[in-house]
Design a binder for these strands. Structure first.
Lengths: 339, 339
DNA sequence: CCACCTTATGTTAAGGTTAACATCATGCTG
DNA sequence: CAGCATGATGTTAACCTTAACATAAGGTGG
């Protein structure tokens, strides 16, 4: 080792100077430090990992990171891990469990100290590899009895149920559903579960299944707004729509306004999820708010706790959600109108 | 090696079956593949990195990732690297060059094959370490003569200049500037450069320096909107404001609407940067649009090209920007009114 | 002043992989 | 069929770090 030669000590002493400073004479330690500075030495973590069987790396897989609420979650994870000295290996699985499988397989080669995944929809092979590696796993955004280990999130069924119930409380009686389509729901577990919650609320409230329209690409505002608006205009009997995400909801509000349909006077609109944009359109979009950043920080915290004490149990934290009434729906009967 | 024993071949043959399949007899390769499947073997990348001096990891440092346009950029990088089989080690430096230094130092231990940084503001130590490691570097979001190696972005001075010039072309003559404050600009090189561009445009157009207001926390919509609105109301002579980012701009539009000030009839508003929200408020925010996703993909591409051919030159790609006129400013004299 | 403890440092081997070289069988050329 | 090219596989060593054990110098107590 370069630094060792430079100082005239063995490699072991350099290693100790860095990892167990109190085991090295102060004078030596200082000379080692100086040499490290002077030579710009950076320890080779690959060798470190190999020898110690501990990499200091945490793998995070989210569906996407652009524009989405997952970027908040990643920020939360990053901030928390950073403080603890862990590094973050990130990948986007595009809502595709097979892609997730490939990513996890490749990432496990780095012998991560922990893995944070989104949702509970994983291939059997993914599960097998994770179990095989014996690595702690946190699943985010979905707390249910399907979690494989630790989990931080909320109950998506309840979230869907809650927004539908809220619409009924507002007094809407013929509520349509602008959803993301069976193909998307097959891949997006959480969306499918929320749909089930919505249907259950209809049923429990004594309504028939809602009239439903599926949006092809539920992440493009203009397109989904247009489809939602068409849907509304072709179903004059409908008095409100629930949109399966906030993109569709905001798109609908914008498009309806342009077509001269007044929200919420002519039609109520609600979404699910609460990106920045939901509060900024006018009227604001009534929606279910999920604490994205907090899901990130708590996931990381749970993982760190496990790393600290490997015997700790598989905690599942339900961080809940909030129904946020805004201007796109009328006030709940007997209550104040939302702003 | 487990797999090798299982198949009854040497470790080398397993290695070859994975990395140089054509050097291995087909029958052997198949048996190796089966054993790999059966045992859930995942190659230890640490050993691989150690031996080959090549990690397959690319380090990416952005200021933040939440809500911001950098999340688009990271998505672009992720998508591009993923296709090429590289993995992404991500960190957020919070606009702090010292933190960036620590991150880079730590990350270099992974012997990344490339590093992608945001902006040109780095500590001397950061530069030294990067040079020392001999790792290819791409700087994003700022193309200027200060780039250390490759770069993908645009000229921030010109971007500032362009939006100010656009306001003058719209006919505004007493334009105020809602900026992010000296503290922020000291840390945020690109914002400072854009400010300079704005001032230069005022000067070139024959105007005195704009009346200026600084926003404490330029990333919180409600607060900055309030400050911007206060500023407008306390300066009745002003006919338009340029906001230093789109958060302030959108906040200003919302807050001014609530206070009964009509945009753009009473006052024009423009921003810099173009998150989703800029197009979704009403009126839409006139702003300068930066191609965040494309900056990501091109940065990754540039890096991949260099990895492919280490002798390639330090290309700098100016992806430009677009001034996007929306409803928050009046139309340019003699031209159509923007939607 | 010897046995023993402490402190500082060194030595050896191992971790999993692969480059480089070595071996061996097979088949082809002349 | 000797000589040699080809293809398939094996062996060795090295990549850099650190756990575990070893050594050496100095100090303590009886």
């Amino acid at each position: 080792m370069d630094v060792a030669d430079h100082v005239g000590v063995s490699a072991m002493t350099v290693s100790r100077a860095l990892n167990q400073p109190d085991k090295v004479a102060e004078a030596t330690r200082e000379r080692v430090q100086e040499a490290i500075e002077a030579l710009g030495y950076v320890p080779t973590l690959a060798a470190n990992t190999l020898r110690r069987e501990r990499s200091g790396v945490i793998v995070v897989v989210v569906p996407t990171i652009d524009q989405s609420v997952f970027s908040d979650t990643v920020q939360g994870i990053s901030n928390t891990l950073d403080k603890a000295g862990y590094q973050l290996l990130l990948a986007c699985a595009s809502y595709d469990p097979d892609k997730e499988e490939d990513l996890v397989k490749a990432f496990l080669g780095h012998r991560p100290d922990g893995v944070i995944l989104t949702g509970t929809l994983h291939t059997p092979t993914t599960r097998r590899h994770l179990a095989n590696a014996g690595v702690p796993v946190v699943e985010m955004w979905d707390v249910s009895d399907e979690n494989m280990d630790m989990a931080v999130g909320f109950n998506n069924f309840e979230a869907g149920y809650a927004i539908a119930q809220h619409m009924f409380r507002c007094g809407y009686e013929r509520v349509g559903y602008v959803a993301t389509g069976p193909a998307h729901e097959a891949r997006e577990n959480r969306a499918a579960t929320r749909s089930k919650g919505i249907y259950a609320a209809f049923s429990d409230a004594g309504f028939a299944e809602p009239v439903r329209m599926n949006v092809r690409d539920p992440l493009i505002i203009q397109d989904s707004g247009r489809i939602a608006a068409d849907f509304v205009l072709s179903h004059p009997d409908i008095d409100a729509i629930i949109c399966a995400n906030e993109i569709i909801g905001v798109g609908a509000i914008n498009e309806l306004r342009e077509r001269g349909v007044s929200v919420p006077d002519d039609i109520g609109v609600s979404g699910i999820g609460d990106a920045n944009i939901a509060a900024l359109v006018s009227p604001g979009l009534t929606t279910v708010q999920f604490p994205g950043y907090e899901i990130g920080t708590q996931s990381a915290e749970l993982l760190l706790a496990r790393l600290d004490d490997p015997t700790s149990t598989s905690e599942r934290r339900d961080v809940g959600f909030d129904v946020v009434p805004r201007g796109s729906t009328v006030g709940i009967k007997g209550c104040d109108q939302p702003r």
